[in-house]
């Protein structure tokens, strides 16, 4: 191991785990000892990442409170050191962390609220993509319609949630008292996307969620219609599919169409 690599390995180990292994490499000053000086980096590492998580999950913080959020941030930071060039993505494992670590694994609303909050953040600054306009579709030959496939915009997120986490998030975001936690019988798919530079969301009916799943997976318009036959008679299914498509285009969810 080179001297430079040794310095860096021991410094990083100190930042992640503490201990004395790094202190042999650095100097006291006349005003301060080396442990305090190295500690400035140790503390800054943690404070910086807590701030990042707080910025990305302000309503998760509000839901569980200050002490629990600091404890969560410490546990998360130890479990998932950042591997991204941008701290913006440091919190991307938070939902999984909450779903697999107690005490939150047994409180699904916490993980779901984090997932919802993260999706809103992603939608806000996701890379720009094209937006399909209705005229493009209107100009397509009617023979092409059955085989049309669509691509969703890069800012669109779909979240199946089993609790009323979005309602709780909305109350916390508005600095209102959140409603009690409710668990729904069948999960509801929430749509999160961006319009006019703002992240927005709405709940999808079961049939619309199914249609959007099929469309997002690359199924043709005919296959989307067939999927809706699970919910509607065949003649109504086609009309419902066309209605959904019209709404998605108006919402700016669709990036492109291909035959």
């Amino acid at each position: 191991m080179t001297a430079l690599l040794d310095v860096q390995a021991r410094f990083q180990d100190f930042l992640l785990n503490g201990g004395d292994g790094f202190l042999d490499l650095i100097c006291d000053t006349s005003k301060e000892n080396r442990r305090v000086l190295a500690g400035a980096y140790y503390d800054a590492y943690r404070l910086r990442l807590i701030e990042v998580l707080d910025n990305d999950f302000p309503n998760l913080h509000g839901l569980i409170g200050d002490d629990s959020f600091l404890e969560l941030a410490a546990g998360y930071t130890a479990a998932h050191p950042s591997t991204s060039e941008n701290a913006r993505w440091f919190g991307r494992h938070m939902t999984d962390y909450l779903r697999t670590n107690e005490p939150y694994a047994s409180q699904p609303v916490v993980g779901e609220l984090a997932a919802f909050e993260w999706a809103l953040g992603e939608a806000f600054d996701a890379p720009d993509s094209d937006t399909l306009v209705a005229e493009t579709l209107e100009n397509m030959a009617s023979d092409d319609w059955p085989g049309l496939v669509f691509t969703l915009g890069g800012a669109v997120r779909r979240l199946p949630l089993s609790t009323n986490a979005p309602d709780i998030w909305q109350a916390l975001d508005g600095e209102q008292v959140p409603p009690s936690v409710e668990t729904v019988y069948a999960s509801v798919t929430w749509l999160v996307w961006r319009r006019d530079f703002s992240a927005i969301y709405r709940a999808l009916d079961l049939d619309e969620a199914r249609a959007l799943d099929l469309l997002a997976s690359g199924k043709t318009f005919t296959e989307v219609c067939e999927g809706l036959c699970e919910f509607h008679p065949p003649d109504m299914a086609s009309m419902r599919a066309a209605g959904c498509l019209q709404q998605w285009i108006a919402d700016g969810l669709i990036a492109s169409v291909a035959t």
């Binding site: 001297a3 990083q12 590492y45 591997t83 701290a87």
Partner: peptide
């Protein structure tokens, strides 16, 4: 330097001032 082994410490960490 900012990290080792793929980890980013999100800090601007000083180098030793050596010929190496």
């Amino acid at each position: 330097w900012t990290g080792l082994n793929g980890t980013n410490m999100h800090d601007l960490l000083p180098l030793p001032y050596t010929v190496e």
